[in-house]
Simulated assay, not measured.
Amino acid sequence: MIWIAIRMLTGDAQKFYGLVFGIAFSTLLITQQLTIFINLLERGASGVYNESSADVWVMDSVSRTTDVAYAMPATALDKVRAVPGVEWAVPHLRAQASVRTKDGDLEGVAIIGVDDATLIGLPRNMLEGRSDVLSQPDSVIIDDVGATRMFPDASPIGERLELNDQRAVIRAMADAIPSFTSTVVLYTKYSQALRYVPGTRNRLSFVLVGASDGVTAQELTDTIEAETGLRARTREEFASDGVDFIIENTGIPLNFGITVLLGFIVGVAIVGLTFSLFIRDNIKQFGALKAIGVTNSKICRMVGAQAGLVGLVGYGLGILGTVIFIQAFSSDPTFKGFYIPWQVPLISMIAVFVILGLTGWIALRSVLKTEPAAVFR
């Protein structure tokens, strides 16, 4: 009976392809939009992900993320270093500035000052040059996405910039996760960053802390907050703060949620209409089967097999389309590091099951109500 159901389905090529298209389009839309949504949210934690050494981030009590921070006095560093359980603590500066290239273009950039001695705060990997180039005068390291934006047709190494009326020379390029806004990022030593950033009374953005052996990051955050009165967050907590900030302060969740919902609705509409037409056109065949003794339960299994085949083919094509989309745009700096989380195809699969289950049940009702005698009228 299952074979007969498959032959009935594939025998009407127009409706079969229509069902497959509906499922494939819905799967593609849901999977692609959820993938972009999750990757954009993770960009809110890029500042934390790019720094892999610190167990704990310490900041002013009103600071929210790496990009939304209130500067602390320099004495905060000594307070943190005096806390029991702190193996090491280094200063970290993050500020905005404007640069003028040799072509006269003006670009807003993020200045990140890392510890002079250890260079803690730099991304782990360098695509060009070495991290020790910061020992040279006026040296900065640019992130690879920013380099593509500022110097699309040439290597940035050796380029001179006018950074807040001071000279800066790009001597290396880092492999970094872009920020949510894809702002150009320049890394330099903390002492040099203080000269690049306009002077204010307090300029220490964060203190990066390493925990001593036998002390967990969570225990250390509690101790630092109790001893200093500053806000301390573990690496995972601070990364989550960046994601939560985007969710709470932008319209991205609503916009992507509407698109995913539309994908689901379109899938239901296309598949439901096509499935109903298919059942209606084959109602006499189903009546004939019932007339020769095929039970309603076997009819349900037949329709389920038809829905399963459509779902399998359509879902596979939709996932394949998403993979092709991500691969096609992987060279674009905007999509750098984008990937498909394993949860997204699972969510799409559940959505496909719901679409097929809902539309299949609606279409099946007319078959179950069909009287065997109807075929002879």
Rank of each mutant, 00 (worst) to 15 (best):
V80K: 00
R377D: 10
R43V: 05
I319H: 01
V68F: 07
E159Q: 14
V352E: 04
D67C: 07
F25T: 07
G121M: 07
E162Q: 14
A232K: 09
G357M: 09
V48P: 00
I177K: 12
A82K: 07
I142L: 04
A291Y: 09
A168V: 08
G47W: 02
V56G: 00
S331C: 06
D165F: 12
A307F: 02
D138L: 11
F256K: 10
I252W: 12
F37K: 02
V169W: 06
D60G: 14
M150S: 01
D281Y: 08
L194S: 06
L186R: 01
L119V: 08
D115L: 00
M302T: 02
Q14F: 14
V271H: 01
I299R: 08
R167Y: 15
T27D: 06
L208V: 04
V344Y: 08
L230E: 08
F329Q: 11
L364Y: 09
A232T: 06
G85S: 07
G85H: 02
I340V: 15
F286D: 00
N50C: 11
G287S: 03
F376G: 10
V260T: 04
V352A: 06
V260F: 00
M126D: 07
Q32W: 11
L320Y: 06
T148G: 10
A110H: 05
F376E: 08
G22M: 04
G108E: 12
I142C: 02
N202H: 03
G47S: 13
L208C: 09
T216C: 10
Q14T: 15
Q327T: 08
P84K: 14
L356T: 13
D55A: 10
V83R: 03
G214P: 01
L261I: 06
D12I: 14
Q306D: 10
M59K: 07
P91T: 06
I258W: 00
A291Q: 05
P372V: 05
S182H: 14
F275L: 13
D153A: 10
L273A: 08
A176Q: 03
E51F: 00
D115V: 00
M1E: 12
G108Q: 13
